[in-house]
C-alpha cells in the first residue's frame, strides 16, 4: 500500500505519448471575512489531482456541480494560478513559466466556454473576435488574418458573410461554433472544452459534438472535455476522469470506465442517468443527501458521507490513496474498499 500511495498516474509519463502531465495540482480559493478581510477559510476547489493527457486524445473530466472540474481546466491553462502542483505541457512546467513564455504557450492552448454568448464581445463583429488572438500574438498580415478567419468559419460550418455580423444575430448553436472557430484560429495543439454543449438543445448539441470530433481528426487536436453529462463524455472521450469535491475519484480509459466502474461514486453516478429506453430495468443506486460544502469537506474520503459502503473508522478517517488497480490497462481509483480483488 505504502509504495503505491505516492504514485500518481504521472509516474509512468512518457514524453512521446503525453501532451500534458498534471502532478498534484491544487487550487484553494481563500474566503475572506471580518473587519480586516482575513482569510477565514479555504475552498479546496481542486485538491491534489494528478493525470496525464495523451497526444491526440480526448480526456473527459466529469463530475457534478462544484466538484472542481471547471477550476481544474482553467488552472491547467493558468487562467487561474494554481496553489500548488505542476502542469507540464510538452515537458515544460507552465506553472513556472514567465509572462513571455506563457504568452507563447497560450497559442498552443485554447479554451471553449459553456456560454458562447457571454464569451463573445457584443460590440465586435465575429470576424474581429475570431482574429483577436491573431492580432494579440502578431500573427500574419491583415490579409492573412482575414484568410484565417474565413478558413476557420468554414471549418465550423459557417459562411464567409457571417464574419461581418454581431453575436446577437446568431443562435446558441451558431455562437458555440464561433467559440470553436475562435479557439481554432491560432492553430492550437490543445483545447479545453468547458461544458461546450450543455447550454444547447439536443439537436444542436449533436451538431457541435460532430464538429469537435471532425476537427480533432483534421488538425490532430488534443481535447480536455469538461462536462457533467456522462453520456456526452462517453461519446466523445478516449479516457475519462471522475471528480468529486475537488478530488479525482476514478480514472480509466472510456471502455474500462463505463463497462467496469469500480468506485462507489462512479457507480451511483452512472446508475442515476436516465436512459432513453422505457423497457430497460436497472438497479438504481440512489445516493442520500447532498454534496457537502467544499468549505468544509468531510475528513477521510470526501465521499464517505454519501457512500453506500463506507466503513466507520476507516473511510471517515483516512484519505484513500489514488492508485492503479488495473492489471492489463490503467484503472486508477481512490477508494479504500474496492479495486483490489474485484473487477479486472
Amino acid at each position: 500500500m505504502e509504495a503505491t500511495v505516492s504514485q500518481a498516474p504521472t509516474t509512468q509519463s512518457d514524453s512521446q505519448r503525453d501532451l500534458l502531465v498534471v502532478k498534484h495540482l491544487k487550487k484553494y480559493f481563500p474566503v475572506r471575512g471580518g473587519l480586516l478581510k482575513r482569510v477565514v477559510a479555504q475552498v479546496k476547489a481542486v485538491d491534489d489531482i494528478s493525470f496525464t493527457i495523451r497526444k491526440g486524445e480526448t480526456f473527459g473530466l466529469v463530475g457534478e456541480s462544484g466538484c472542481g472540474k471547471t477550476t481544474a481546466g482553467r488552472t491547467i491553462l493558468r487562467l487561474i494560478e494554481p496553489t500548488a502542483g505542476q502542469v507540464f505541457f510538452e515537458g515544460k512546467d507552465i506553472a513556472k513559466a514567465k509572462a513571455g513564455e506563457m504568452k507563447r504557450l497560450r497559442r498552443d492552448m485554447q479554451i471553449i466556454f459553456q456560454d458562447p454568448y457571454s464569451s463573445l464581445d457584443p460590440r465586435m463583429v465575429i470576424g474581429e473576435s475570431i482574429a483577436e488572438g491573431l492580432v494579440a500574438h502578431g500573427i500574419g498580415t491583415a490579409r492573412e488574418r482575414e484568410q484565417t478567419v474565413l478558413r476557420v468559419l468554414r471549418d465550423v460550418g459557417l459562411h464567409p458573410e457571417h464574419a461581418r455580423r454581431y453575436p446577437h444575430e446568431f443562435s446558441g448553436g451558431q455562437r458555440q461554433r464561433i467559440g470553436i472557430a475562435r479557439a481554432l484560429a491560432l492553430r492550437p495543439k490543445f483545447i479545453v472544452c468547458d461544458e461546450p454543449v450543455s447550454a444547447l438543445d439536443v439537436s444542436i448539441q449533436s451538431q457541435v459534438l460532430n464538429i469537435l470530433r471532425s476537427l480533432q481528426r483534421q488538425y490532430g487536436l488534443t481535447y480536455m472535455f469538461v462536462a457533467h453529462n456522462l453520456s456526452v463524455v462517453e461519446h466523445i472521450s478516449d479516457r475519462v476522469g471522475v471528480m468529486y469535491l475537488g478530488k479525482m475519484m476514478e480514472l480509466a480509459d472510456r471502455e474500462e470506465m463505463y463497462s467496469n466502474p469500480l468506485h462507489p461514486y462512479t457507480k451511483a453516478l452512472m446508475s442515476a442517468i436516465p436512459i432513453p429506453d422505457p423497457n430497460l430495468k436497472r438497479e438504481r443506486i440512489i445516493l442520500k443527501g447532498d454534496v457537502p460544502s467544499p468549505l468544509r469537506p468531510p475528513p477521510g474520503c470526501v465521499f464517505h458521507t454519501r457512500c453506500p459502503i463506507a466503513q466507520k473508522g476507516l473511510c471517515d478517517k483516512e484519505i484513500p490513496a489514488f492508485r492503479n488497480v488495473g492489471q492489463t490497462r490503467e484503472h486508477w481509483i481512490a477508494c479504500h474498499l474496492v479495486g483490489d480483488k474485484e473487477g479486472n
Binding site: 443562435s171 448553436g173 451558431q174 438543445d201 439536443v202 439537436s203 444542436i204 448539441q205 449533436s206 451538431q207 459534438l209 460532430n210 470530433r213 456522462l230 453520456s231 456526452v232 462517453e234 461519446h235 466523445i236 463505463y258 452512472m270 442517468i273 436512459i275 432513453p276 429506453d277
Partner: peptide, 24 residues
C-alpha cells in the same frame, strides 16, 4: 427520429451522432 438519434446514450458507442441540420 432525429431527436432520438442525436442524443448520446450511455453504453452505446457511435462514431458520429445523427444531427438535425439547421435550427428551429
Amino acid at each position: 427520429q432525429g431527436l432520438l438519434g442525436s442524443i448520446p446514450v450511455l453504453g452505446v458507442i457511435k462514431d458520429e451522432l445523427d444531427s438535425i441540420p439547421g435550427t428551429v
